[in-house]
Amino acid sequence: MTMLVHEGQPTLLPRLSASRKRERVERTDGVAPKLRSRGLRAFFGKKEVLKGIDLPVAAREVTAVIGPSGCGKSTWIRCLNRMHELIADARLEGAVELDGRDVYARDVDPVLLRRRIGMVFQKPNPFPTMSIRDNVLAGLRLTGTLARVRPAEVVERALRQAALWDEVKDSLTQPGASLSGGQQQRLCIARTLAVDPEVILMDEPCSALDPIATARIEDLIHALSDRYTIVIVTHNMQQATRVSDSTAFFLMGELVEHAPTNQLFTSPKDRRTEEYITGRFG
């Protein structure tokens, strides 16, 4: 499995991969989506921030969500693993389906859901009181499942998958907060991988990082998309073109357009999409 991941230097150039991506989009057409939001409306108090989003997320692909600030893209991604409802005043209508099952059904426990849909946040948030090793194991320890695994193996595997192993293998007992911003974010990804989710949600994972760290995360996303379904919210359109198979454009709480990434950026169907990607607003 180590060959999946590009340890050390960011070797895999995004442009090289574009052709491969396109192939895959075509290949997966017609397959049932891993996740699907149906008529999803989200509210903060009386304010409606999502106005009925219908959007499928294909399995083992990277789906990017773009749009100007306040368009609802972050809210949407937080609805997928039921993090939205943790905010005071937050409310929601409609459905999100994971493998065809409504995750908002009465008998679904959001905790069980979140074990299958992991999330990486905007700002790297490793647990400050824990070492690198403990950060990776945090999910297993938190959920009381650590006893069922061999910790050393999980740590190495997750860190290798997150392309961080070589950099930290000699300092696993150092605090997670001692790493650089980019390393912290990869640590957060490793932490998410360690609980073995099926879907990984990334809410602007590179917005707090410098370009080199960003490139490494993008490589990583790319590598991970072979086995995980990934949704990434980004304010950076170049990033969307570099990492994603399909892209959705949100505007003022509505889904304007969803298409294979190449198509959306080269021949958008909606005038508003065109205006946005050509930089006329936002």
Binding site: N81, M83, L86, V111, L112, R114, R115, R116, G118, M119, F121, K123, N125, F127, P128, T129, A138, G139, R141, L142, T143, G144, C188, R191, T192, V195
Partner: peptide, 21 residues
Amino acid sequence: DSTREACLALGSTRWQAIRQV
């Protein structure tokens, strides 16, 4: 809050997050 969210996103229950983190 980002710490709590990190715990919950890993699939911890509320109490697991409180007690351990």
